[in-house]
């Protein structure tokens, strides 16, 4: 059972290849360079060095967002096209859930943060302590203003571990609200580890037909939002 995992949903480009027993290969860069150009050569070289040919893959897993619109599309399109061509199942996995794996074992909540501009974040809440090798979801993926999110978290009781991009730059704002309940992952917690995609897919994932897997943007396109607003204004 060989699975390939792909993540291009943030600045990080990550690929992992694993069989049932072990990671065969893993590749991560965090250099904000063109995912579209670099993804397939990276896949090709990782597969080749691991001695695996495409026909040997039994499944593919991919982060479906939320994150960079273009980044998510590159990863999802690549993964679904490969899965379709190879006629193997595709596991869609939330980018936030994979991020939260960086807090696996944490006694409390894990809140992954991905910047969504204008002081908004893509986030969710997971329980870090688990026997399953995967964090368990407590709150859904969403886009929300950081102060609003902190209000939501204030209502909870446990300690909260923040993982994900730019957690450092938001520390002060978060501490102000949550005080010592807020805990921050160090630099290792700020990028996705690609093999975690495979772990999440195996423990909590759902095998899907490639055609049905689509990016999860967590919000409508700007034009679509405006159009819907105009429509509801008209009917009022």
């Amino acid at each position: 059972m060989k699975m390939l995992a792909i993540d291009t949903s943030t600045h990080v480009l990550g690929i992992a290849l694993a069989d049932e027993q072990k990671i065969l290969g893993e590749y991560t860069t965090n250099i904000k360079k063109n995912h579209s150009v670099r993804l397939m050569p990276a896949v090709e070289s990782l597969m080749k060095e691991s001695g695996v040919v495409p026909e040997e893959l039994d499944a593919i897993a991919v982060t479906t967002g939320p994150g960079s619109y273009t980044g998510v599309r590159i990863g999802v399109t690549t993964a679904k096209s490969m899965a379709w061509a190879l006629n193997i199942p595709l596991y869609p996995v939330s980018t936030l859930q994979v991020f939260a794996q960086n807090g696996l074992g944490f006694p409390g909540l894990v809140s992954p943060l991905i910047d969504a501009r204008r002081n908004q974040v893509y986030t969710a809440a997971f329980s870090g302590s688990t026997e399953q090798n995967a964090v368990t979801r407590q709150m859904k993926d969403q886009i929300i203003l950081l102060p609003e999110w902190l209000k939501v978290l204030e209502q909870t009781q446990e300690k909260i571990l923040f993982v994900g991009e730019d957690t450092g730059s938001r520390q002060e704002q978060i501490r102000e609200r949550l005080g010592s309940r807020a805990v921050f992952a160090d630099w290792m917690g700020q990028t996705i580890r690609p093999a975690e995609i495979i772990r999440v897919a195996r423990t909590a994932g759902e095998a899907r037909d490639a055609h049905t897997v689509v990016p999860e943007y967590a919000q409508l396109a700007e034009a679509e939002k405006n159009w819907q607003k105009a429509q509801s204004g008209r009917s009022e």
Partner: peptide
């Protein structure tokens, strides 16, 4: 650009998968 990227990545992935 965003539209092109979907086709390009789909074609690359398909070509690679099937050699």
């Amino acid at each position: 650009v965003g539209a092109l990227l979907v086709g390009v990545n789909a074609a690359k992935a398909t070509a690679y998968a099937k050699g």
